[in-house]
Design a protein around this nucleic acid. Structure first.
Lengths: 234, 234
DNA sequence: GTCTATAACCGGATAGAC
DNA sequence: GTCTATCCGGTTATAGAC
């Protein structure tokens, strides 16, 4: 998260002035949000602490909500880093799914209080933060990609029709767990972890069951229902 | 929805002046919300159209959001009226559950656009509109009560342990459908209706299955998990 | 307790000059 | 890219009338 110094010849493009200012504003905002809370942190205060003019913060972030969008993307990067080693180590479906889910919950833990705001906006179909929105599409696609990885790395046999649909379904499952997590006021969100562990078990059993040849008709008709429900969530 | 005239001797308490003013403000606000949208309707405009002073709207509604809370309660009354006849007529579990769910979706239909705002706030664990909040407790309890009614009126045998838990679970199921509904942009929310019809079927089959004697151990352990997850959602 | 009128505060957002 | 000035609307405050 620390900004790399400008010293050198790394092959990555060096941050332009604008990128630096943008980063400065974002850092300042996130820091203040977690210290005082979202509502209590005014755009004016962010600008002042960051040493820029109010108008300038709006040059880089279209609205206060967009600062949260930026936070969301950063959280997503944390998830990416946390999931990669798990997907290299674990070889069972259960181990992989459980590992990924636990990593995600752990990453979010410091932001539990603050995340409520994120998901308030996320529930609004018109907000850019809505997980189904165009703005969130990139993040969503990549997340779904991780769940595809979860499936690919195991030796569990899964029929192709189901395997095509499962990544989106697992992503949806993970959103459900996150929704529970937001409302979970137990210490360190222990309840959510319990729910997650039990449901991961159930999900894995269900996948195994649904992959059995005799289940083919039921599986087909269920997948058909899903197809007919899909908007462009993919 | 029309305000009864003051003419008479009905046994209901006649609305006091204050109640009339309150109702006037609420009617005006809801009308404007559905015409122009929530964000576009200012408190000043509501007050002006209702012919009261701005301060007076705040006398009756602590905030703009509380106007939505009032709408939520009104919607709940619509649901109550729509569900009662269904629970008198239908005698099968499937018929009752399906009827109730369809009635709820139909009632909400005119407010699809507008309901997004409601649920944006509802997703915030700190908002009074959150379905798990103290302010929503009365409405939630009554809703859960309807689902208890759905179960009681059938001849389907359901073991006591499951029957105790089911109303809350069905309520949760119904919240899930509503969540889908909010994000459903298909004409007349046709997708949601399709989802509802299929899942009502599945839920009924699942209940029947879970009620079978051989399922007792699995049922018990699942109910135990649920108990351990419960905060005070009841 | 119900209501009016008016002014002010506060903070998110925008316009336009440099 | 950055700034200052301004707008706009939710909310609050005040002082007084019925």
């Amino acid at each position: 998260m620390a900004k790399r110094s400008r010293s050198l010849s790394s092959e990555e493009p060096l941050p332009s002035k604008g990128e630096q200012t943008r980063a400065l504003i974002l850092e300042t905002a996130l820091e203040m949000f977690s210290e005082r809370g979202y509502e209590e942190t005014t755009m004016r205060a962010i600008a002042e602490k960051a040493g820029v003019a109010l108008g300038n913060t709006y040059y880089y972030f279209r609205s206060k909500e967009h600062l949260i969008q930026a936070f969301y993307e950063r959280l997503h990067e944390l998830h990416r880093e946390a999931c990669a080693p798990i997907l290299e180590k674990e070889r069972t479906l259960k181990g992989r799914l459980h590992g990924v889910m636990r990593a995600i919950l752990r990453n979010m833990e410091p932001y539990h209080q603050f995340a409520a705001i994120l998901f308030r906006s996320a529930a609004d179909p018109h907000s850019p933060l809505n997980p189904f929105s165009r703005e969130s599409e990139h993040v969503r696609r990549e997340s779904i990609g991780w769940f595809a990885e979860v499936l690919k790395g195991t030796r569990t046999h899964i029929p192709a029709d189901l395997e095509a649909e499962l990544p989106s379904l697992l992503w949806l499952y993970h959103m459900g767990i996150v929704l529970f997590w937001i409302h979970d006021s137990s210490p360190r969100q222990a309840r959510t972890h319990r729910l997650m562990e039990h449901t991961v078990d159930m999900v894995v059993k269900l996948i195994t069951l649904a992959s059995l040849p005799p289940m083919r008709p039921l599986r087909k008709s269920t997948l058909q229902l899903l197809a007919s429900l899909r908007e462009d969530v993919a």
